[in-house]
């Protein structure tokens, strides 16, 4: 979904550039205050993994391929703003070093594949994580004692390792982590493609009625690949070393409305 030079109008590129620069500045300011030591190597490795995995185009229907985006993965592993920074680094390097995505469209590409893909997916992720346990457990959502916990081990790990202050109050939530990740990562790709189509239509490159269904259609297939990879990586990290992801202590504990 890397937009080359000349696809999107100057105004849209400029606007997207302004938005991403502003979000980037906020993210850097926030990271200066709250980046944890454990996140230092994790940030570099997430960036490396996202870059490498983006090179692995997998074939989908009709002589078309798709590749992993990774924005939601980065946000889930590092929190939304740090995840956005990871995507900015990856997309900027792709653009400057590998000529993948036009330099005039750099802001637009970071906007689509970093901000929109990440946030679009992340909102769905947090929503599902809040709502699914509630729907399927008949209202144990408010059960802050965590009496009915199957995921007791998970709770142990998180409460003992993330930090002294974090207590996993809502262990049912951990069981819904992977389903939420899967659905949300599909949404992340599809949302990004919808915004990409919108930008192409607004630039007069292609009529909305044509480019929108085409982009969303193709990317709803690519989104399945995204879901498989994102869920796979999250499940490995969650099973092996969840304490490396300080964000999860907060995410998995948070109740509806605590966002």
């Amino acid at each position: 979904m890397h937009i080359p030079d000349g696809f999107v109008s100057g105004q849209i590129n400029a606007a997207a550039f302004a938005v991403t620069a502003a979000v980037g500045a906020v993210a850097v300011a926030k990271a200066k205050k709250s980046l944890k030591e454990k996140q230092v190597p994790l940030l570099g490795i997430t960036a490396a993994f996202v870059f490498a995995a983006q090179m692995l185009n997998f074939p989908i229907a009709g002589g078309t391929s798709g590749h992993f985006l990774g924005a939601l993965l980065a946000m889930i592993l590092l929190g939304p703003l740090n995840g956005f920074l990871v995507m900015s680094i990856v997309i900027t390097v792709q653009c400057l070093v590998f000529a993948d995505g036009g330099i005039t469209a750099l802001g637009t590409n970071i906007f689509n594949m970093g901000l929109i893909a990440g946030l679009g997916g992340y909102v769905v992720f947090r929503f599902l994580l809040a709502v699914l346990p509630f729907i399927f457990k008949g209202g144990t959502l408010g059960d802050r004692d965590g009496k009915s916990n199957k995921a007791g081990e998970v709770r142990e790990v998180i409460s003992s390792d993330v930090s002294g202050s974090i207590n996993m109050k809502n262990p049912e939530r951990a069981g819904w982590l992977l389903p939420s990740v899967a659905v949300a990562s599909w949404f992340s790709v599809v949302t990004a493609s919808a915004f990409c189509a919108l930008e192409l239509a607004l630039s007069g490159t292609s009529p909305f009625g044509i480019v929108f269904p085409a982009m969303v259609g193709v990317h709803s297939l690519i989104g399945i690949g995204e879901a498989v990879i994102t869920t796979g990586v999250v499940s490995i990290v969650f099973a092996a070393r969840p304490e490396l992801v300080p964000v999860w202590g907060k995410v998995l504990r948070t109740r509806m409305g605590d966002n």
Binding site: F58, P59, T64, G66, G102, C196, A214
Partner: peptide
Amino acid sequence: ASKAPDGLERVSENHGFNIQ
């Protein structure tokens, strides 16, 4: 990895706006 055009490249080819 697959060398086929990706989602956006495919759409731009099919709908004739791949002239950069």
